Amino acid sequence: MARVAFLGLGVMGGPMAGHLAKNGQSVTVYNRTYAKALDWAETHKGQSAATPREAAQGAQFVMACVGNDDDLRSVCLGDDGAFSGMQTGAIFVDHTTVSAKVTRELAEIAAQKGIGYVDAPVSGGQAGAENGVLSVMCGGSEADFTAAEPAMQAYGKIIKRLGNVGAGQTAKMCNQIAIAGLVQGLSEALHLAEKSGLDGEALVDVISGGAAGSWQMVNRHKTMLADDYDHGFAVDWMRKDLAICLEAGDDVGASLPVTALVDQFYKDVQKMGGGRWDTSSLMKRLKSFD
């Protein structure tokens, strides 16, 4: 049994921490809204803490799944931050999707304190977190990754180290770029089918088993055809991620024209009041032109 701290109990972090507890780890949780930490601790027979530092004290592994770069800095740094409470040799595992820049910044600070660091953003959405079948993309030293991997197996189906610190976040950006293009293509296909009088379900039955098939097609086409966008990852969060993608592309000289275009389409969705709709709402944008 390892002593683990988990910082951030949102739709992803709450279930992930729950899997750690179910897997026999001793888990202490922190959440900005303390009542949520208390509720989690009661439900999962764990412990709650009022600050990240308190949660991290004595933990071998400190996991985080918060909102953005600033949120991550706030739970790591300062007198009440996790780094202030972590012991030498402990490992910080960040499951937040953030920039590679802040990842390397925090990893350097952690190293100065004798703390290991693994950036480990996840893919699979809320359902993947609840079912413990997330894909985990990792960056960090081989030693830190090897030490942390058994704990991550509580909620990860695929866990892979892709390089040193920052590699996990870069891989997650590639994931988001691929999703953005796929969702736009699927939206246009279903929109054309509807405008042409085709049965959308019948169309998907025909094309999903071939080269056009994708996770998005299988799992989102029904709700898209039903004009229902209350599922999965929100547009506001996707735009946050795509901004990181575009910045990363500029940093290394990568051309990302489709990503830039779809980012603007998501901006249109936000203007429609759809910031909390899921990413498949690109279909809603197309319908708005009818």
Rank of each mutant, 00 (worst) to 15 (best):
V204A: 01
M63T: 04
Q184Y: 05
A17P: 02
A180H: 04
A17D: 03
I115Y: 05
L190E: 08
K271V: 11
A100S: 12
D144T: 07
D241Q: 06
V75E: 03
K157D: 11
N219T: 14
G163K: 07
W40E: 08
Q126T: 13
L182D: 13
D119E: 01
Q126K: 11
D205F: 03
F83H: 07
G24I: 10
A111S: 15
S281R: 02
E142R: 14
A90K: 02
L225S: 09
G249N: 04
G10E: 03
A49P: 00
P257H: 07
M272R: 11
L203A: 13
F289V: 06
S187A: 15
V27L: 10
A202R: 14
C174I: 02
A212E: 15
A178D: 03
N31Y: 03
L225A: 10
V62E: 08
D144S: 10
G249K: 03
M12I: 04
K160H: 14
N31P: 00
D250M: 05
A2K: 15
C138S: 10
D241N: 10
Q153M: 14
D230F: 05
Y30C: 10
S84C: 12
Q112F: 00
E188N: 01
K195F: 00
H191V: 06
D263R: 14
S196C: 12
K45D: 14
Y229N: 07
R32N: 10
Y266M: 00
A189W: 01
M283G: 02
D251H: 11
K240A: 02
D228H: 11
E54N: 06
L77R: 13
R53Y: 06
H95Y: 08
A254M: 09
